[in-house]
Design a binder for these strands. Structure first.
Lengths: 346, 346
DNA sequence: ACGCCGGCTGCACACGGTTGCAAGCGCAAT
DNA sequence: ATTGCGCTTGCAACCGTGTGCAGCCGGCGT
């Protein structure tokens, strides 16, 4: 065996130590820019490290310091454009602070979500972000076991949770429905999802509040249940259109649902917004490219991601205060909303 | 200080060792189901571990075994729906095999891409997947330095790369344009991106081949340059429409471009497909929900992700063979393509 | 009685870093 | 000459897990 072959393993501080004739402790300190090391020695060491293509092992450092500078992000599925944008914000902020992010899908299954969180625990991540958690408050016992701060984005499990970033669903939804009411709509449908998630519950609450404040009757038959995706919304829309007195406007739980609704409405030979107005929620990039462009509530997705990461940073720095951030939504009026047909006849 | 307080650090095999009165080696072996440990002892140890809420440290294990069961995925941006689907496939396959995935954005900047890969190197990932790499073949020297297999998905840098999964751009694109030719189109525009990426180059090549095989002239004025996103495509479409003899069909580099083109065509008062046919590439989920639904080339995104992960697994297992996988695209004919106006007048 | 063997266990070291502490050095002050 | 101090450096322990090897014990064959 040829001893002079390049070793199959990456260079370590010990290799640098023998190369420069100092102890590995000195190398370690030099590479940390510790003031304890002589300037020239440090310089020599750094040059050697550079020359030998040295890359510090984050694994070993993690073991020694019990800080991995790593966070875990669990999402329902990264294929969801909403989620992807949020993650993009998280990653950006994490990267700014020298953290790497683990990504894992929960497929919206609570058991799987917990499993993933545990696996993050084994990875010794410094913190965890969960979007659209299906577990929420149930984390409390788990958290006392693993000592890792968790921040939830748009928690879907009922109940308050220690640390979270959420969109102000009720207010945003109320504003959206108000917009429709102001346009003159009286028969406004709510197309929710059928799982009773927190977002759905709150957006529905905003819908009812808006009706109430305008002294409009709440009509149970105008509540339809999709699944948060186009397919489910299509079926739900079908039912709404078949009503003896169909709605003149539909407020959708999210843009994905609005997409399905739009398709079905068109298929029925009706026009948006002339015959039916449509409002979404999320402001996915597609909202701008539908025909007509979709009126919707914008969630500052990337910003919410950043925000979550920043609260996580605070918590990892030792903050004890409970963070419960509500971010306002913004109604973006495009071309899918107009006065109802009756209004224009007057 | 209360000695009996729960320790601030998670339980280790040593804690279990003292609790059960054996050495930590035995605990280690017991938890690995090693046949070297007495059944009853092992059982006792496993119960204690369970009871103490023991979670093995992947960090320490990684250090000891120099296998982290971790892979790095670098993407241009996870906010791109195409990328998100691919990553979803990667994550799925990785998870199936007990691997965790690090995610990082390169923002399509080559320097940043390399920086990220190096950071993955420090994390001692077992393998790396890069989607839409802007670096490609330039990795070769880097790779001999860090001993980590890399698989590229839809490499955008010219030149062959050792390991890659790519869509068969030329063939797919040829098929798409053929579809338009068969419908009777003679003036077919190509709306590419302006960066000369590999996908663009190859799809353009397919476009030319199709024209050639049909003995149609290649008209340089029908080549427009967007940026792979709706905005750029809008501007490019504008120019095409202003031509003295505008195209009757536009083949777009990707669905995002098609979205922009569609918007601009509508804004010009023209109808798709009656006045102009439109073909995209990628088959993003939106393609099904545009009006009209978009004819496009489907890339099996999730599958390509899985494929990349699986080749990575092979490589990590020691395979030396060069993997250079070409995945066929599939033309999905929806409603955005029809015979040209002239054809229908005959 | 002795040796051997199989089953089980622990010792000790390795992985690649970080860090408290002691110690060496030169030099100035006493 | 002794002491003390500041600047550097190295020693050694530690983080939590894996693993080669030696050693222990009991039982069996001769």
């Amino acid at each position: 065996m040829n001893v002079f072959k390049t070793p199959p393993r990456p260079a370590s501080i010990k290799d640098i130590a023998v190369a420069t004739g100092v102890s590995h402790s000195t190398v370690s300190r030099a590479l940390q820019d510790s003031p304890l090391v002589n300037r020239e020695t440090a310089e020599k060491i750094r040059r050697a490290a550079q020359h030998m293509g040295y890359r510090a092992s984050a694994v070993a450092r993690g073991l020694a310091t019990s800080k991995t500078r790593t966070i875990g992000v669990v999402v329902t599925t990264i294929a969801d454009p909403f989620v992807a944008e949020v993650v993009s914000g998280i990653e950006e902020a994490a990267n700014d602070h020298g953290y790497s992010v683990f990504l894992a899908n929960s497929n919206a299954e609570p058991e799987r979500e917990i499993k993933v969180v545990h696996s993050f625990g084994e990875r010794r991540v410094d913190g965890i972000v969960v979007t659209a958690s299906r577990v929420g408050a149930l984390y409390v016992p788990i958290l006392s076991e693993m000592r890792v701060p968790i921040v939830l984005i748009n928690n879907q499990h009922p109940g308050e949770f220690l640390h979270s970033v959420m969109i102000a669903n009720v207010e945003a939804s109320r504003e959206a429905v108000n917009h429709l009411i102001k346009l003159g709509h009286r028969l406004i449908a709510y197309l929710g999802d059928r799982f009773g998630h927190q977002s759905d519950t709150e957006r529905f609450a905003g819908y009812r509040q808006a009706l109430e404040q305008a002294d409009l009757p709440f009509l149970p038959e105008l509540i339809a249940h999709g699944d948060g995706r186009p397919e489910g919304a299509e079926r739900a829309t079908q039912k709404l259109l078949a009503l003896p007195e169909p709605p003149t406007a539909v407020f959708c739980y999210n843009d994905m649902s609005a997409l399905g609704a739009l398709k079905r409405i068109r298929a029925a030979g009706l026009r948006v917004p002339e015959d039916i107005s449509l409002v979404g929620f999320d402001d996915l990039f597609v909202a701008e490219y539908t025909d007509p462009p979709l009126t919707t509530v914008r969630q500052p997705k990337r910003h919410m991601g950043r925000l979550a990461m920043e609260t996580l940073l605070k918590l990892m720095a030792g903050s004890q205060s409970a963070e419960h951030i509500r971010v306002p939504g913004e109604l973006i009026v495009r071309a899918s909303t107009a006065p109802p047909p009756s209004e224009r006849c007057r």
